[in-house]
Deep mutational scan, measured.
Amino acid sequence: RPRTRITDDQLKILRAYFDINNSPSEEQIQEMAEKSGLSQKVIKHWFRNTLFKERQ
């Protein structure tokens, strides 16, 4: 599977949600997927990776 490139606009959407809640529900993930055009799997990975980076 090729690597997914996240655009600046998509990143703004993900960051806005992350700043509010770094552990989103399935409904929130689905909402982000619809708004951003990214798959739910990509969003879950982004949140997991970003949370890991923030904790270091």
Results as ranks from 00 to 15, higher is better:
residue 53 K to L: 14
residue 25 S to Y: 02
residue 11 L to K: 15
residue 12 K to L: 12
residue 39 S to R: 12
residue 6 I to F: 12
residue 11 L to I: 07
residue 43 I to M: 01
residue 39 S to T: 07
residue 23 S to Q: 12
residue 40 Q to P: 08
residue 7 T to A: 13
residue 45 H to K: 13
residue 55 R to I: 01
residue 50 T to S: 10
residue 3 R to I: 07
residue 49 N to V: 07
residue 6 I to L: 12
residue 49 N to S: 11
residue 5 R to T: 15
residue 45 H to I: 08
residue 39 S to H: 07
residue 38 L to G: 01
residue 54 E to A: 09
residue 38 L to E: 01
residue 27 E to N: 15
residue 42 V to A: 12
residue 11 L to R: 11
residue 44 K to P: 01
residue 8 D to G: 12
residue 13 I to A: 03
residue 44 K to C: 05
residue 42 V to K: 09
residue 13 I to E: 06
residue 48 R to Q: 14
residue 42 V to Q: 11
residue 32 M to S: 01
residue 34 E to T: 13
residue 29 I to L: 12
residue 50 T to P: 04
residue 15 R to S: 12
residue 34 E to I: 05
residue 39 S to C: 02
residue 2 P to A: 07
residue 35 K to Y: 01
residue 50 T to Y: 03
residue 7 T to H: 03
residue 30 Q to V: 06
residue 56 Q to A: 01
residue 14 L to E: 00
residue 18 F to R: 11
residue 21 N to Q: 04
residue 50 T to V: 09
residue 36 S to K: 00
residue 33 A to V: 06
residue 54 E to S: 10
residue 20 I to K: 15
residue 35 K to F: 02
residue 18 F to C: 06
residue 21 N to D: 11
residue 49 N to Q: 06
residue 33 A to R: 13
residue 40 Q to T: 05
residue 55 R to H: 15
residue 42 V to S: 10
residue 7 T to P: 04
residue 4 T to R: 02
residue 22 N to F: 01
residue 3 R to W: 01
residue 37 G to S: 06
residue 46 W to D: 03
residue 36 S to Y: 04
residue 28 Q to G: 06
residue 46 W to H: 05
residue 26 E to S: 09
residue 18 F to N: 04
residue 31 E to N: 12
residue 45 H to T: 12
residue 41 K to S: 07
residue 34 E to D: 12
residue 33 A to M: 07
residue 9 D to R: 07
residue 27 E to A: 14
residue 31 E to K: 14
residue 8 D to R: 06
residue 44 K to N: 10
residue 16 A to N: 15
residue 30 Q to C: 04
residue 7 T to V: 05
residue 55 R to N: 04
residue 46 W to C: 02
residue 28 Q to H: 10
residue 47 F to R: 02
residue 3 R to L: 11
residue 8 D to N: 04
residue 46 W to Y: 12
residue 13 I to Y: 11
residue 8 D to L: 07
residue 34 E to S: 06
residue 40 Q to E: 04
residue 2 P to R: 09
residue 39 S to G: 04
residue 8 D to I: 13
residue 14 L to N: 00
residue 24 P to C: 02
residue 13 I to S: 05
residue 41 K to T: 08
residue 47 F to I: 02
residue 46 W to K: 01
residue 38 L to W: 01
residue 10 Q to L: 01
residue 50 T to R: 11
residue 34 E to L: 10
residue 11 L to G: 06
residue 26 E to Y: 13
residue 52 F to T: 14
residue 24 P to E: 03
residue 5 R to A: 04
residue 17 Y to W: 03
residue 21 N to S: 10
residue 30 Q to R: 10
residue 4 T to S: 05
residue 49 N to Y: 06
residue 53 K to Q: 09
residue 28 Q to K: 14
residue 32 M to D: 00
residue 19 D to Q: 13
residue 47 F to L: 07
residue 11 L to Y: 15
residue 37 G to P: 00
residue 37 G to Q: 10
residue 30 Q to P: 07
residue 6 I to Y: 10
residue 21 N to V: 05
residue 44 K to T: 11
residue 14 L to T: 00
residue 44 K to D: 14
residue 2 P to T: 13
residue 30 Q to G: 08
residue 55 R to Q: 11
residue 8 D to T: 06
residue 6 I to P: 08
residue 12 K to F: 05
residue 51 L to C: 08
residue 12 K to D: 05
residue 8 D to M: 14
residue 50 T to N: 12
residue 13 I to P: 01
residue 19 D to L: 14
residue 13 I to L: 09
